[in-house]
């Protein structure tokens, strides 16, 4: 274990109505075994002891699965480590003397709440528009009566692994949520359980995406590059096919 000294430039913003700016902080003796969020914990303890306002940031499980954390680090959503959430990024990826720039996930659909905290409820509303199989509790058939080949099950699982963090949106020049939406549409269109509603689902989820102000995919592939779960943009292609299919086949 070794320790490093860092300069942090962090976006500070009181709320969505006020203007924000970068503040600079110096941190010394940061253990390289620390996670990135533990490094911010150390900063926040330091700020608290100095009587200053700690940096607000969303986080919870710190195991890379809840999707609560996320910030743009040196221009990259979730930072420099591939397929890694911010909480699983460790300080051994940085060198002593580095200046690290930390900003919130920016998108017109993600209003800033405070500092690095943003409102991602637009993603919830996309799921609410149709990201489910309409089945009530009870009265379902035996699990084994719906056989699903391993290849299909694996593809569905690849898509279902999305943690809803919003990094795809933050990294897209068009602020598109198509990787997020495509992942859910793919999961449910690959599985037999999702087929009865596939037309309606594709249409309503895409319509909700538009309504929230998200943009469209222009094949930059930035979303795939930052996705902490390695979700492939093939899911966007699958969504486009599902959407087209629902338009062609009509009501």
């Amino acid at each position: 274990m070794s320790s490093i000294d860092l300069t942090l430039k962090i976006w500070r913003q009181k709320n969505n109505d006020s203007l924000g700016d970068f503040e600079t902080y110096i941190l010394r003796d940061i253990s390289t075994d620390m996670s990135f969020l533990e490094m911010i914990d150390v900063l926040n303890e330091q700020l608290t002891r100095e009587g200053k306002d700690p940096v607000a940031f969303d986080h919870d499980c710190r195991e890379g699965i809840c999707g609560m954390c996320g910030a743009v680090v040196d221009g990259v959503a979730h930072g420099p480590d591939r397929e890694t959430t911010l909480c699983q990024l460790h300080m051994r990826k940085f060198k002593s003397g580095d200046t690290i720039v930390i900003e919130p996930f920016r998108s017109i659909a993600f209003p800033i709440k405070k500092d690095l905290m943003v409102d991602r409820s637009a993603l919830d509303r996309i799921i609410q528009a149709g990201g489910y199989v309409s089945v009530n509790t009870g009265g379902t058939v035996d699990g084994n009566s719906i056989p699903i080949g391993t290849e299909t099950a694996e593809l569905a699982m690849d898509a279902a692994a999305c943690i809803g963090c919003g990094a795809c949106v933050a990294s897209c020049p068009n602020s598109a949520a198509m990787l997020f939406t495509g992942a859910k549409i793919s999961q449910l269109s690959l599985l037999p359980q999702g087929l009865p509603e596939r037309k309606e689902r594709a249409r309503s989820m895409v319509a909700q995406m538009d309504k929230e102000g998200f943009g469209y995919c222009s094949n930059e592939k930035e979303c795939e590059a930052v996705c902490p779960k390695g979700i492939s943009i093939r899911n966007i292609a699958r969504m486009n096919r599902e959407f087209l299919r629902s338009l062609l086949l009509g009501e």
Partner: peptide
């Protein structure tokens, strides 16, 4: 046992054997 059936019906991608069973 009902829980598994419910989750499968929702589209939870449980691991499968080659024959397609859970």
């Amino acid at each position: 046992t009902e829980i598994i059936d419910q989750c499968v019906a929702q589209g939870v991608p449980f691991a499968r054997e080659y024959g397609g069973t859970l």
